[in-house]
């Protein structure tokens, strides 16, 4: 690293490279200054707030005052004691898992096809068509689904005018609509992470399998897919985490009766002003996501070796 280290450091300190200990000491102090603004930002904007949130979750709720009072597990007891909240957690899990599964089923072919397209130009277009929606923001995409799926939306009015249905079909504000909306949001993440995985694996293994007599499906399932396993896993993990924490899609597309975890955090904090309980829901959400991620990665490590 030494050569590269010099590059980064003296460029900004303006010092000439000095040998030995002086150099190392100077490098360390300059690294400190270079890291100071970014670390301060993350500490003040993320780490301290999260610590405070953890503290808030064990405080006693007093509607009359925002002060943090007492140490109690009553908020957690309430969450795990009330079937209503457990049901919301379960629903969030089911939605996240089904979204991840469908994203996998659609994302693998999409990523595979993009990685094997021979024309450079077409590949660039397909990658842009994946990435642009990814960075489009949830509000706009939710709006898109709403105009498509609403009772008076595009799909219903098209079906009505074609005479295929007599009454609008209820799609918006159902669980399926939320899953559809989330898949659209998450699929680009899956595609983009798998595309580079397939690209890196290359075609030689598939070709080797085929010359040895393996038909395309066999070559794909016995060779390509196992080699892509680490990438597939991280893609799934990403989708799962994002689905667990989705806010805009369930609120706008699911409507008031289809409740999931992230919107509940907002509701408790802003509408009910019960910060301790909002903090509890947020932390339970984070903890469940984290535990499942770690557990599944351990399970996969056992099966496929180091990922």
């Amino acid at each position: 690293m030494s050569a590269l280290a010099l590059t980064g450091e003296d460029s900004l300190t303006g010092g000439l490279p000095a040998p030995g200990a002086t150099d190392r000491r100077r490098r360390r102090s300059s690294a400190g200054w270079l890291l100071f603004p970014s670390l301060t930002l993350v500490l003040a904007g993320l780490v301290l707030p999260l610590a405070l949130m953890a503290r808030t979750s064990v405080a006693h709720f007093d509607a009359a005052s925002p002060d943090l009072v007492g140490f109690t597990l009553e908020n957690y007891a309430r969450f795990f004691g009330e079937p209503f909240y457990l049901m919301i957690l379960a629903r969030t899990l089911v939605v996240a898992l089904s979204c991840t599964a469908i994203c996998l089923v659609l994302g693998v072919p999409a990523a595979f096809v993009i990685s094997r397209v021979e024309s450079r130009a077409l590949k660039t277009v397909l990658i842009l068509a994946t990435i642009i929606p990814l960075l489009m923001g949830n509000a706009v995409r939710a709006a898109g689904w709403m105009v498509l799926l609403a009772d008076k939306g595009l799909i219903n009015s098209a079906l009505l005018s074609a005479g295929l249905i007599a009454e609008p079909v209820r799609i918006l504000y159902t669980g399926s609509a939320v899953v559809i909306g989330l898949i659209a949001v998450l699929l680009p993440f899956m595609v983009i992470s798998l595309e580079s995985v397939f690209e890196n694996i290359g075609t030689a293994y598939e070709e080797a399998a085929q010359t040895m007599g393996a038909p395309p499906w066999t070559a794909f399932f016995r060779v390509t897919l196992p080699l892509a396993m680490p990438g597939i896993f991280s893609g799934c993990l990403l989708c799962f985490v994002l689905a667990m924490n989705a806010y805009a899609t369930p609120v706008l597309i699911g409507g008031p009766s289809f409740q999931m975890m992230a919107p509940k955090v907002f509701e408790q904090a802003i509408k009910v002003y019960n910060w301790p309980f909002a903090a509890t829901i947020a932390l339970v959400l984070m903890a469940v996501t984290l535990v499942l991620s770690v557990a599944s990665s351990l399970a996969l490590q056992k099966r496929y070796g180091v990922l």
């Binding site: 659609l106 096809v113 489009m136 709006a143 898109g144 498509l148 898949i183 699929l187």
Partner: peptide, 19 residues
């Protein structure tokens, strides 16, 4: 494979095209 790819792009792009 190509069908899956097309389905994926339809899912991702249709809300944007619609709006």
């Amino acid at each position: 494979m190509v069908g899956g790819c097309v389905a994926a792009f339809v899912m991702v792009l249709s809300p944007l095209v619609a709006i």
